[in-house]
Computed example of a mutant assay.
Amino acid sequence: MPREDGKRNFALRETDGTESSVYSGNTPRQAALKAARRLHPAPSEEEVDDRADLRLREKGTDRVHVYQGWAWTEGKPDDGPEWMPDSVTRANVSKQGIEHLDDE
């Protein structure tokens, strides 16, 4: 059920079915990008060699959005503010599909 501001909550599911973190976003992809930024980043986008499976259950539903995600580090943009660190973590995701949980 969306909140008044349109955001929905998505729980990150582990392989054993436990839900470790909750990410919010207007779309499942937005929440998946937030989750992917917490992965161990590669030194650069060209050096990304492995992708992690991200399974996000939409709270209040039986839908599990399945993504592959990866992250890398980049230098601070030239026009970045002073408070921004010298390197930032970037991420990308690719949707693999939607699964439905069985009634337990």
Results as ranks from 00 to 15, higher is better:
residue 34 K to L: 10
residue 14 E to M: 12
residue 41 P to F: 01
residue 13 R to S: 03
residue 64 V to C: 05
residue 86 D to N: 10
residue 47 E to P: 08
residue 5 D to F: 07
residue 9 N to Q: 15
residue 4 E to K: 14
residue 69 G to V: 03
residue 67 Y to Q: 02
residue 93 V to P: 01
residue 9 N to A: 15
residue 56 L to P: 00
residue 30 Q to M: 08
residue 4 E to M: 12
residue 6 G to Q: 06
residue 60 G to E: 05
residue 42 A to H: 06
residue 57 R to E: 03
residue 47 E to H: 11
residue 94 S to Q: 14
residue 16 D to K: 01
residue 49 D to V: 14
residue 21 S to F: 13
residue 15 T to P: 10
residue 59 K to Q: 15
residue 95 K to A: 14
residue 27 T to M: 07
residue 50 D to Y: 13
residue 20 S to D: 05
residue 22 V to G: 07
residue 35 A to I: 04
residue 36 A to E: 00
residue 94 S to I: 13
residue 83 W to M: 10
residue 33 L to M: 10
residue 21 S to L: 13
residue 26 N to P: 05
residue 55 R to K: 12
residue 53 D to Y: 15
residue 36 A to N: 04
residue 10 F to R: 01
residue 23 Y to H: 07
residue 42 A to I: 02
residue 60 G to Q: 04
residue 4 E to S: 14
residue 14 E to C: 08
residue 17 G to A: 02
residue 73 T to L: 03
residue 1 M to C: 09
residue 5 D to E: 09
residue 12 L to M: 09
residue 71 A to F: 00
residue 9 N to D: 14
residue 73 T to N: 01
residue 7 K to V: 15
residue 81 P to E: 06
residue 75 G to M: 06
residue 34 K to F: 08
residue 78 D to Q: 11
residue 3 R to N: 14
residue 67 Y to N: 00
residue 89 T to N: 01
residue 44 S to Y: 07
residue 21 S to V: 11
residue 84 M to K: 08
